[in-house]
């Protein structure tokens, strides 16, 4: 086990007395050790509090006085005077405030612009139009261009469907949500699955599909929230488990959490099956110099609507009939 940093050492760090060679390893340790980080935080907080509460002053007769500080009076939130417009442009009365400021903004809008002002404006508009045209180009997928795609989860089998669609009323909107999901109406699926309430394993089913529907609708941060709330995600049967992890990978990527995404991608690439293939393809693309895979969806991994008994997943094999 790595030894903790001493409080003396941490105080030296706070006071800026360590060389960069001494400082960096200590900071790395502090970032990973909650106990030492708390010592640092206590020390820093104490010093900041002292600076915000007292002032050390030398008395004329030779002594030293530690006096309590009073908050500043009369300064405004716009910061030091040197940064303010009034200081740069002229006397304070020249700065419009309240209604007069609103009027001055209106007046500036309707004031005829100088001829030279049109040139940069026209250039900016042209650049904007060009960007829009490029984004809506023939390849489409502008939102997905250069990013991995979310894949829909496989549909539930007959066993699971019978549980979801059982006679109990509260699960009806979950069942409708799953119908909407399977038909590809993801916004409706999101709405219905959010409204639904379930318990135990059915709650896991609801959250897994809700997270996927959110990701399919492009609501990645919300999808991430829901994904985090899924308990025992590693206990899901295949292929839901790996598809759920793939969706997590995509949401991590879309939320700019590259380290988490890369870490998960490497784990997925070590697995077999369509998700493993997909992950290996992305990894090969990355290592081959491409930043990410193309927006083009890969071959469909699962056939649609296996509703009949003959297409139900092998419940005996998984041994987990209720979980997705």
């Amino acid at each position: 086990m790595e030894a903790h940093a001493t409080e003396d050492r941490i105080l030296d760090l706070v006071l800026g007395l360590l060389s960069p060679q001494e400082r960096e390893p200590l900071l790395d340790h502090l970032a990973g050790c909650a106990q030492c980080e708390m010592v640092l935080r206590n020390l820093v907080a104490q010093q900041e509090r002292l600076r915000g509460s007292y002032r050390v002053r030398e008395k004329t007769e030779g002594g030293v006085a530690v006096e309590p500080l009073a908050p500043a009076q009369g300064r405004d939130r716009r910061g030091p005077a040197t940064h303010r417009r009034s200081e740069r442009t002229g006397p304070r009365s020249a700065v419009p405030s309240g209604e007069s400021r609103f009027k001055s903004v209106l007046a500036s809008l309707f004031r005829p612009w100088p001829r030279t002002a049109w040139v940069p404006l026209a250039a900016g508009c042209a650049a904007g139009v060009l960007i829009l045209v490029l984004m809506a180009g023939p390849h489409g997928g502008s939102r997905n261009g250069g990013n991995p795609m979310v894949h829909p989860l496989p549909p539930l089998g007959i066993e699971q469907n019978s549980v979801v669609r059982g006679p109990s009323g509260p699960l009806s909107s979950a069942a409708e949500g799953l119908d909407a999901y399977e038909s590809g109406d993801y916004p409706l699926a999101v709405r219905l699955l959010r409204e639904a309430h379930a318990e135990g394993e059915m709650e896991t089913v609801r959250r897994v599909y809700l997270a996927s529907a959110l990701a399919m609708s492009g609501e990645y941060p919300q999808a991430l929230f829901v994904q985090k709330s899924v308990e025992n995600a590693d206990g899901l049967p295949e292929p839901w488990r790996s598809e759920f992890r793939w969706t997590s990978y995509v949401t991590f990527s879309r939320c700019a959490r590259k380290a988490s995404a890369d870490s998960l991608l490497r784990l997925l690439a070590a697995e077999s099956g369509p998700v493993g293939d997909r992950a290996r393809e992305v990894l090969a693309g990355k290592e081959g110099g491409q930043e990410t895979m193309t927006g083009r969806p890969l071959k469909p991994a699962y056939p649609a609507t296996p509703r009949g008994p003959e297409k139900a997943p092998d419940v005996e094999k998984t041994g987990k009939a209720v979980k997705p």
Partner: peptide
């Protein structure tokens, strides 16, 4: 964990 008053009096802030 400084209070608003302490932050206001902090030498690097100096606000109300």
């Amino acid at each position: 964990g400084l209070s608003s008053r302490q932050i206001a009096a902090h030498p690097e802030v100096q606000l109300k």
